[in-house]
Every structure is written in C-alpha cells, then in structure tokens.
Amino acid sequence: MQGVVKVNSALNMRSGPGSNYGVIGTLRNNDKVEIIKEVDGWYEIRFNGKVGSASKSYITIVN
C-alpha cells in the first residue's frame, strides 16, 4: 500500500510506533512512502530504504 505525507513542514520518522521512540529520519510534504502495516495509530513505513514509523494522521493512502 502506498501513502503520501501531508504536513506543513516536516514529519519525524521514528524507530517505533510512538513519540517516545528515537527519530531516524524526516519526511517532507508530498513524500511518497510504502505502508507496511498499522500499529496503534501509527504506520510502519518504508522510505528511502529505511523502515520506521510515522503517525497515520499525516499520511494519506493512495491507490
């Protein structure tokens, strides 16, 4: 499943599904990500070869 980031500035990509996990990357508006699965309001995603988590509130699913 594919998604597109929708933010005003930037979205942190984290090492796990929650804001208490470390930041491993930064996503910008309109970045395209691969959604692997949903976990507690977060998506596990793949972006630029990295796997991490980002809040699903800022990612829109595209077909």
Rank of each mutant, 00 (worst) to 15 (best):
M1G: 07
M1P: 07
M1D: 06
Q2K: 11
Q2Y: 15
Q2M: 15
Q2I: 15
G3Y: 05
G3A: 07
V4F: 07
V4D: 02
V4M: 09
V4P: 02
V4Q: 07
V5M: 04
V5Q: 01
V5I: 08
V5N: 01
K6Y: 07
K6R: 14
K6W: 05
K6H: 12
V7T: 14
V7P: 02
V7S: 13
V7E: 03
V7K: 10
N8E: 13
N8Y: 10
N8D: 13
N8A: 12
N8I: 12
N8T: 13
S9E: 12
S9P: 06
S9D: 12
S9K: 14
A10I: 15
A10N: 11
A10C: 15
A10Y: 15
A10D: 10
L11P: 01
L11K: 09
L11G: 05
L11V: 15
L11Q: 09
N12R: 13
N12S: 12
N12W: 10
N12D: 14
N12V: 15
N12M: 13
M13D: 00
M13F: 11
M13R: 02
M13V: 15
R14W: 09
R14H: 15
R14C: 08
R14Q: 04
R14P: 01
R14M: 12
R14V: 05
R14A: 02
R14D: 01
R14Y: 15
S15Y: 06
S15M: 08
S15D: 10
S15A: 13
S15T: 08
S15I: 07
S15N: 09
G16F: 02
G16D: 00
G16N: 03
G16H: 03
P17F: 05
P17L: 03
G18V: 00
G18D: 05
G18I: 00
G18K: 02
G18S: 06
S19I: 14
S19H: 14
S19G: 10
S19Y: 15
N20D: 12
N20E: 13
N20C: 13
N20M: 11
N20W: 14
N20K: 11
Y21E: 03
Y21V: 02
Y21K: 03
Y21W: 09
Y21M: 04
G22C: 13
G22D: 15
G22S: 14
G22A: 15
G22P: 15
G22F: 09
V23R: 05
V23D: 02
I24M: 06
I24Y: 00
I24D: 00
I24A: 03
I24S: 03
G25W: 06
G25N: 05
G25R: 04
G25A: 13
T26W: 09
T26Y: 10
T26D: 04
T26E: 10
T26A: 07
T26R: 10
T26M: 11
L27D: 00
L27C: 05
L27G: 01
L27M: 06
L27F: 01
L27A: 02
L27S: 00
R28Q: 12
R28I: 09
R28S: 10
R28F: 12
N29I: 07
N29D: 09
N29T: 07
N29Q: 08
N30M: 10
N30C: 13
N30K: 08
N30H: 10
N30A: 08
D31K: 03
D31F: 06
D31H: 04
D31I: 05
D31C: 07
D31T: 08
K32W: 12
K32T: 12
V33W: 03
V33K: 00
V33I: 07
E34L: 11
E34F: 12
E34V: 11
E34D: 11
I35P: 01
I35W: 02
I35C: 05
I36L: 14
I36S: 03
I36Q: 04
I36K: 03
I36D: 02
I36F: 08
K37L: 08
K37V: 06
K37N: 12
K37C: 13
E38L: 08
E38S: 06
E38F: 05
E38C: 09
E38D: 07
V39D: 07
V39N: 08
V39Q: 10
V39T: 11
V39M: 10
D40C: 11
D40V: 05
D40A: 09
D40W: 07
D40Y: 08
D40K: 09
G41Y: 05
G41Q: 07
G41L: 06
G41C: 08
G41H: 06
G41V: 05
W42R: 01
W42Y: 10
W42V: 01
Y43F: 10
Y43P: 00
Y43N: 00
E44F: 12
E44Y: 12
E44H: 08
E44Q: 12
E44W: 15
E44L: 15
I45F: 07
I45W: 00
I45R: 00
I45C: 04
I45S: 00
I45Y: 01
R46V: 12
R46G: 03
F47D: 00
F47H: 09
F47W: 10
F47M: 05
F47G: 01
N48W: 07
N48P: 02
N48S: 07
N48E: 12
N48D: 11
N48M: 12
N48R: 12
G49K: 05
G49L: 05
G49W: 04
K50A: 10
K50D: 06
K50W: 09
K50M: 14
K50V: 14
K50G: 06
K50R: 12
V51H: 08
V51F: 09
V51M: 09
V51K: 09
V51G: 04
G52Q: 02
G52P: 01
G52E: 02
G52H: 02
G52W: 04
S53A: 14
S53F: 15
S53K: 04
A54F: 05
A54C: 12
A54Y: 03
A54W: 04
A54D: 02
A54S: 04
S55F: 12
S55Q: 15
S55L: 15
S55H: 15
S55M: 15
K56S: 11
K56Y: 04
S57A: 14
S57G: 11
S57W: 13
S57Y: 14
Y58H: 13
Y58V: 07
Y58S: 11
Y58G: 13
Y58R: 07
Y58T: 06
Y58L: 08
Y58W: 09
I59N: 00
I59E: 01
I59P: 02
T60I: 14
T60S: 11
T60E: 14
T60L: 12
T60W: 14
T60K: 14
I61N: 03
I61P: 09
I61M: 08
V62N: 07
V62H: 08
V62Q: 09
V62F: 09
V62A: 09
V62P: 07
N63M: 12
N63K: 12
N63Q: 13
N63V: 12
N63S: 13
N63Y: 11
N63H: 13
